[in-house]
C-alpha cells in the first residue's frame, strides 16, 4: 500500500458516497445516468468474485464489500425507489456498444484464459469506459448539478491516483500490470475534458454548463 493507492481508494469511496447522498438527500436522481451506474455494478461484481476464492486483507475485503453494496444501492435508488425522477430520455447511450466490444477484448487479451481471469479483465476494460453514458448525458442536457460534478471529479481522481500508484509500484516493486495500466490511462483520458471544466468553472463557483 502506498499513499497514491490509499488516496485513490478513498477518492473512489468518496465519489460513491457523494452520489448516494446526493440521491438520498434530494430524493431525486435527476441528471444521473442509471446506465453508468448499472455498468459500475457489473464492474464490481465481475472483479470482486475473488472475494469467494481468496482472502487478501481485511481492508481489501471490506472495501470490496462496501463498493459492491453501494453500487447496488445506487442502482436500486435510481431504478426503484426514485424511479419517477430518473431522466431516462436523456440517458440514451447505447451500452451494448461498450459491453460487447469490451467483452470480446477481454476474451482476446487477458493474462490467463480462465473464467475468473476473463471476468477480471472484462471488469477492468469495462470500468475504463463505464462513465461514458454519464458524460454523454451531460453533453446532451448541456449541464450538471454541482454535486454531480464533485462526484465525477472524485471518480476521475481515483484512477488518476492509481496511475501514480502504478508508477510507484513499478519503480519500487518492479511490478506492473499492462492491462490495468492501459485501461487506466484510457479511463483517465476520458475525464480530461471534464477536469478542465471542473477547474475552470466549478471551482470558481460557477455551475457546469456547456455552450449550446
Amino acid at each position: 500500500m502506498n499513499i497514491f493507492r490509499l488516496t485513490g481508494d478513498l477518492s473512489h469511496l468518496a465519489a460513491i458516497i457523494i452520489l448516494l447522498l446526493k440521491i438520498w438527500k434530494s430524493r431525486s436522481c435527476a441528471g444521473i445516468s442509471g446506465k453508468s451506474q448499472i455498468l459500475f455494478a457489473i464492474v464490481f461484481t465481475a472483479r470482486y468474485l475473488d472475494l469467494l476464492t481468496s482472502f487478501i486483507s481485511v481492508y481489501n475485503t471490506s472495501m470490496k464489500v462496501i463498493y459492491i453494496g453501494c453500487a447496488y444501492a445506487t442502482v436500486y435508488l435510481i431504478y426503484a425507489k426514485f424511479r419517477a425522477t430518473y431522466d431516462g430520455n436523456h440517458d440514451s447511450f447505447r451500452v451494448e456498444f461498450l459491453v460487447v466490444p469490451v467483452g470480446g477484448l477481454a476474451v482476446l487479451i487477458n493474462h490467463t484464459f480462465s473464467p475468473l481471469e476473463i471476468l477480471w479483465t472484462f471488469s477492468i476494460y469495462l470500468e475504463s469506459v463505464a462513465i461514458l453514458p454519464q458524460l454523454f448525458m451531460i453533453s446532451k442536457t448541456g449541464e450538471a448539478e454541482t454535486i454531480t460534478t464533485h462526484y465525477l471529479f472524485c471518480l476521475g481522481m481515483y484512477r488518476t491516483l492509481y496511475l501514480f500508484n502504478w508508477v510507484w509500484r513499478f519503480y519500487f516493486e518492479g511490478f506492473f500490470d499492462m492491462i490495468a495500466i492501459v485501461a487506466g490511462l484510457v479511463q483517465t483520458v476520458l475525464y480530461c475534458d471534464f477536469f478542465y471544466l471542473y477547474v475552470t468553472k466549478v471551482l470558481k463557483g460557477k455551475k457546469l454548463s456547456l455552450p449550446a
Binding site: 473512489h12 481468496s54 487478501i56 481489501n60 470490496k64 463498493y67 492509481y162 511490478f175 500490470d177 490495468a180
Partner: peptide, 10 residues
C-alpha cells in the same frame, strides 16, 4: 505471485 499483487488492488 504476480496475480496476488494484482488482486490486492481495488
Amino acid at each position: 505471485k504476480e496475480q496476488k499483487k494484482r488482486k490486492d488492488e481495488l
